[in-house]
Design a protein around this nucleic acid. Structure first.
Lengths: 215, 215, 215, 215
DNA sequence: TATGAATGAGCATTCATTCAT
DNA sequence: TATGAATGAATGCTCATTCAT
């Protein structure tokens, strides 16, 4: 039950509302956010929020879906590649776009982060399905292509691999952002190389005899 | 700040109180938890909670410190080792103990998880220091020993390595627990091997020429 | 900070709310007053109070400003005078109006009294400035005019003189009100003469040689 | 119902308790003071307070009576005088002792101040009588002596005169203390002269014809 | 004599939501 | 279509006091 007549609203009003919501959700997560505060910060009437959204959950869902769409668009389409090295190079390019977009849109990163928080909560139960994260599968496609090329091990469930890679990615980004907010310079290119190398280490197929990662 | 005369209370009352608190904090995290709910669930009067704890923060700190202590005790002391293989074998043993304890005490895992959530929040500022996590450094010692043996790469900051390993560990445990709660059987030994292998892949020193992990 | 959309409310509702607040604040002072009690006595819901006021402080500020405005209006403008006797006569007229208004509105006197209490408290720090008492300066103007005419001594700081005169005024009014509440008859005219005479004694310039008040 | 077995306590314990209470009551007044806070600051058990005092009121009464006694002792006995000038000089001497004692014991001044606050409250009803302020009448004696000498007007009720003089005294002391706490130097002698002069102006008999104060 | 333990009532404030118009 | 008005339930916390030992 995402949006009723919110779409018909003029772009500026829509932006005003979503911006206030994004900032709040990014800063405090879903639970920690106050619908009242969002409303107050948006400068619009409380009733109008209930006119456009069913409530807090509905607004959150709207905000998250929009953020996911923006990230997806920023990453762009994966170009077909052939060798293992090429595969990782393409991953690096995609990831660089993701990374740059995130660095330029920290609020959207915060929104994504709030989703990760939610996934940790066993009781986010009725909210999570509405986010329709199952529909966001482009990375799974990429991983499967990697498996086909022999770049990514195929002896474990794909959702486990995804969970692990995301965890690492999130941790690294948080680590970098912390330093970014303390105004240390960040070498994005180097960061991306680091993560891709890490992904590769984690995902490389295991030599059936020695168990070592096959490079 | 942590505990006043709570220690003097008889063990049963103490357990009743801490159990109610643990369950609540594990399920909802610090912010999402309700002090009132904990009180109601414990069957005691509101005032008695303020007699034993300074407030919500104090109770949380008490619960967390207790959980950390239990995990630390469960893991036990690291035994001195010499070679790289031995080092990882010892890690596996320690980790197995950690893992088994966590599987048998999912609520305590939840408590630990709530701390991770808190660390993600930029505003948890005045609460985090009280948890005295800086005093929990045994794993840093282990990692440094690994670096000394050439088992763990030394070309990155240790806190980055810790953050990444923890992220992976947390993700894997969540993945396993989910399946555990759906009453799928879990082969703990296999899980531990998986994680240790993952750790080893992530942490292995890089060959200076090829950049590949050196096994 | 003071009032949001409270002004738009119909006069009757506004009066109901302010009356309940006035009575409470007059009877118990700011600290001793209970927002909950005001709400209960007004017959409205708790939330509606937070819809119209930011909180207890805000309501108090509203009540006080309103009371001060009513008193100021009751006192009216000072008419220009020339001689010393005329000056005191004009003071008596102004004061008579103040006095009569106060006698007819004891609750408003109580509100004013609560402000005096607050000024005594070193910790009323963040509340007092909101009352904007610095804007209420008509009496300082009058005193300065009196100094210009030689009716009021100019060898002491004006704020000291104000403090002393107010103290005397407050004490006399309390003394009279007490008797009033015990249904003794009060001769307002005589009271005013008494206070003006007292003011004149206190404020008369000192003869430089004898130190006696110069009449 | 002032004190049960509190008197039997050793002097040091008694002082510890009373000091904590004095500081609290002086700083926050009776209503604003927290019995819990006094107990916490005293370092003693909560139960012991209820063992020695019937409750908050009882402790307050004890503290006030003690303070009044200390002030009374500090002021000392009035020496018999004959002329008007001598009378005021003796007043000045007594008052100087009062003033000096107060300046050296600001906490006790605070306790006295809290009594004045209480007298302003119509609801302090059941507490005020316990303070037995009616027993403190030495100043009335002095005033009556002044009336006998023709130094103080006798055409108004004595309690009105007392109330007015106290009001002025309190206001002047507060004015001075404020500056004292801002570490401005205070000339006590000059202050006393100022107040005595003010008292004399206020209290001097009125010439039956002109109404002017007779010096 | 002395105190640790426990309590119910109250505090100001914020929450997401609904309703009447 | 749009919103001002109103609300019940909950939040964390402090209060003075009592009771059992």
């Amino acid at each position: 039950m995402p949006i009723p007549r919110f779409e018909k609203l003029d772009a500026e009003s829509r932006a005003t509302i979503l911006d206030a919501a994004r900032v709040e959700f990014a800063a405090h997560g879903y639970d920690g956010s106050s619908y009242n505060r969002i409303i107050a910060n948006s400068g619009r009437s409380k009733s109008s929020f209930y006119y456009y959204f069913q409530g807090k959950q509905d607004l959150y869902v709207t905000v998250v879906k929009d953020a996911v769409a923006q990230f997806t668009e920023a990453v762009g389409q994966e170009r077909p590649v052939e060798g293992i090295e090429e595969f990782w190079a393409e991953c690096a390019r995609m990831f660089l776009r993701f990374y740059e977009f995130g660095m330029n849109n920290p609020v959207l990163v915060g929104v994504l982060k709030s989703v990760f928080e939610l996934q940790r909560q066993p009781l986010g139960g009725d909210l999570l399905p509405q986010l329709a994260l199952k529909d966001v599968t482009w990375y799974e496609t990429t991983i499967q292509r990697g498996q086909g090329l022999g770049a990514i091990r195929a002896d474990y469930p794909i959702d486990l691999i995804v969970a692990l890679l995301f965890a690492v990615l999130e941790a690294k980004m948080r680590w970098s952002l912390e330093r970014w907010f303390s105004s240390e310079a960040i070498d994005i290119k180097q960061d991306v190389d680091f993560i891709i190398d890490l992904f590769r280490r984690m995902a490389a197929p295991a030599d059936p005899e020695t168990g070592k990662p096959r490079w």
